[in-house]
Amino acid sequence: MTDVLISGASVAGPALAWFLRRAGARVTVVERAPGPRDSGYAVDFRGPALDVLAEIGILDEVRSHETRMRGVTMLAPDGSVTGELPASTFAGDLEVPKRALTRILHRVVDAEFLFDDTVTALEQHDDRVTVAFESAPTRDFDLVFGADGVHSAVRRLAFPGTDPIEHLGMSGAGFTTGNLLALDHQGLLQPAPGRAVYAFSADDPAAMTVSLSFATATAELDRADRAAQEAAVRAAFADHPWPQTPRLLAAMTAASDFYFASTCQVHLDSWSTGRVALLGDAGYCAAPTSGMGTSQALVAAATLARCLAEAGSDHAAAFTRYEKELRPYVTDNQHLGRQAVSTFGG
């Protein structure tokens, strides 16, 4: 029985864990967070990702949490209506709250979870990988998978000296507040050169999710503290003409779930080295603007697991086939991510 480690317990990690457990592997999942992540806003699924949910056996349950968004109203910077976008523009074929997907995946995955921990060292051998953790004892695994996001610890250790992150010129803050704009399964989008406001209310009528995006030359703010990040958002929107903007900025400061990130992509010549492979944002983030992050994570997990099953004990052949099959899909998604930056005001 193969003994594998997966770093990251968001979407790609638990999905891969489910498929590998079905194939008979022993699976350990290590996650930096102290427990299953209850953060995140809405995630959407498109095309083949629905087939993956069905294969795992959770499609109907996931559908029961559908946000049922009705569409997005386009606004000029002064608040006047300029048009409407269909719900599918942001919601894809199916959209659910991120926390609902996370809870479902964690419930159906039969694996050992190491929460509040992370990988600190990898030593590859011909027949195993020795992994050191921040808290847990050092252990050997047959294979290691990095599904730990754009700033992947596994990627940093397995691909030393590489800097595969490309900043696409936009950063932004996200947070939840009261439904200040009285939205009902509806979104508002104000795209403008250099900045954009997006707000929506979906599953909870009393709550509204807000995203304030603006042009940035680098991703340095990602490493700053919240005070500096908030200051940058306020500076970017200080002269914004929409009368609601000051209310949104005040709500940002009061929000308990404030989140800041830059719009980035990850580009690597290879997604594997030895007995270590990457999937999801860790290996090939397409940028949030692609609308394909969750779908790509699910499709990647299913593809990687199938390639491993078909290759038997030849992990190198499995990794080669996985990349050959998936890279065209990833390339298309990354193209979408680049195209959409301008729509969001980048």
Rank of each mutant, 00 (worst) to 15 (best):
M1P: 14
D3L: 03
D3Y: 00
I6Q: 09
S7G: 11
G8S: 06
A15R: 08
G24R: 07
V29L: 12
V29K: 03
A33N: 06
P34F: 01
P34R: 06
G35F: 10
P36K: 11
P36T: 11
D38T: 12
S39P: 00
Y41G: 08
R63W: 04
S64R: 08
T67N: 11
M69P: 01
R70G: 15
G79S: 05
E84R: 14
P86W: 05
P86R: 03
P86Y: 03
A87V: 08
F90V: 15
R99N: 12
I104Q: 01
F113L: 08
D117S: 06
V119N: 02
H125C: 06
D127I: 09
T130G: 04
E134I: 00
E134A: 10
P137N: 11
T138S: 15
D140Y: 12
D142V: 07
L143Y: 02
L143V: 13
G149S: 03
V150K: 08
L157M: 11
G161F: 02
G169F: 06
A173D: 03
T177P: 09
L188H: 15
Q190G: 00
P193E: 05
Y198R: 12
A199G: 06
S211M: 14
R223A: 15
R223I: 04
A228E: 13
A238C: 10
H240W: 09
P243R: 06
A254K: 09
S256V: 10
D257I: 07
D269Q: 11
S272H: 15
V299E: 07
C307G: 08
A311N: 09
G312F: 03
A317W: 00
A318C: 08
A318S: 07
A318Y: 00
R321L: 15
E323F: 08
N333D: 12
